[in-house]
Simulated scan of single mutants.
Amino acid sequence: MDRAERSLHASSFGAAAGAYAEHRPDYAHDAVRWALEPAPGPRVLDLGAGTGRLTAALVGLGAEVVAVEPDPAMLAELRRALPAVRALAGSAEAIPLPDASVDAVLAGNAMHWFDMAVAGPEIARVLAPGGVLAGLWNLMDDGVEWVAGLARAGGSAAVGPRDTPAPWRSATADVHLPKTGEAPRFGSPERSLHPHGQRRTADSLVETLATRAGMLVMPQAEREAALGRIRAFLADRPETARGEFTLPLLTGVLRTRRL
């Protein structure tokens, strides 16, 4: 994806901020704990915080959270849902915080949108020495047969290149963290996968997939055709045809420490 296409996808969520807040899953609590495990203190920046899914998990774990989000509509949803949280307009490339002011920077389903050549030094600037940088992604567990079928039915717009475990490992191998040879330096990255799930119906799963960036930037006719294929697939599967079911997920975490 080139820079212009990435910018188009990254800026697509605001138009669907309400649906995003309603339908996107939270993050496995074990994954959030693992991400924070090496942090030297409780001050956490949720960067690219969206509507506050990860922010809420951090608050629940007792972190001192500040959220930063560039999209006004997403930021408004976050402030509505979590009025006690300090929530600021800003981006990974221009973080509105002082130097060494946080012990951890976490990003939920957002780090792949960062221009790390610019964001890396900014993240390093706001992190205290020994601080943690971690990205979290909710992945569909395509080791489950019907989930693999859903991925095929939906196509790459619905289930993208970071949305299942194997492509996620490849995509995060070396591109989403500051380079270790740069100063200030970051340590070697670590990865972890944590079981998770989201209760859905066929209709609400379609609504969830409709909030994916690839879907949001599609021409309307193509988008409706893709969602129609997903509806037909879910209607034909015994696991999903009637009532509620659990969508099998894994929360993948990529973390490193500022040296």
Score class of each variant (00 low, 15 high):
M1L: 14
A4C: 11
R6P: 05
R6T: 14
S7M: 11
F13P: 02
A17G: 08
A17H: 07
G18C: 12
A21L: 12
E22S: 13
A31T: 09
A35S: 08
L36M: 13
L36C: 12
A39C: 05
P40E: 03
P40I: 01
P42Y: 10
V44Y: 00
A49H: 08
A49W: 10
A49P: 04
A49S: 15
G50K: 13
A63I: 10
E64C: 10
V65Q: 05
A67E: 09
P72T: 03
P72F: 02
L75V: 09
A76P: 10
E77R: 15
R79E: 10
R80S: 12
R86S: 04
A87G: 07
L88Y: 03
L88I: 02
E93A: 11
E93P: 05
A94Y: 00
A104L: 11
A107W: 06
G108L: 07
G108Q: 05
M111E: 14
A117V: 12
V118E: 11
V118C: 09
E122V: 04
R125E: 00
L127G: 01
G130K: 05
G131C: 03
V132Q: 01
V132D: 02
M140F: 13
D141K: 01
D141A: 06
G143V: 00
E145Y: 00
E145F: 01
V147H: 01
A148T: 01
L150K: 00
A151M: 07
R152K: 15
R152E: 15
G154H: 01
S156W: 13
V159I: 15
A166H: 07
P167W: 04
W168S: 09
S170N: 13
D174K: 14
E182Y: 11
L193V: 08
P195S: 15
H196L: 10
G197L: 13
Q198G: 06
R199C: 12
R200T: 04
T201F: 03
A202I: 05
L205E: 09
E207R: 15
E207I: 01
T208F: 15
T208A: 11
A213M: 09
G214W: 11
L216Q: 01
M218T: 01
E224P: 00
G228L: 06
F233V: 08
T240S: 11
R242S: 11
P248Q: 02
P248F: 02
G252S: 09
L254V: 14
R255D: 09
T256C: 12
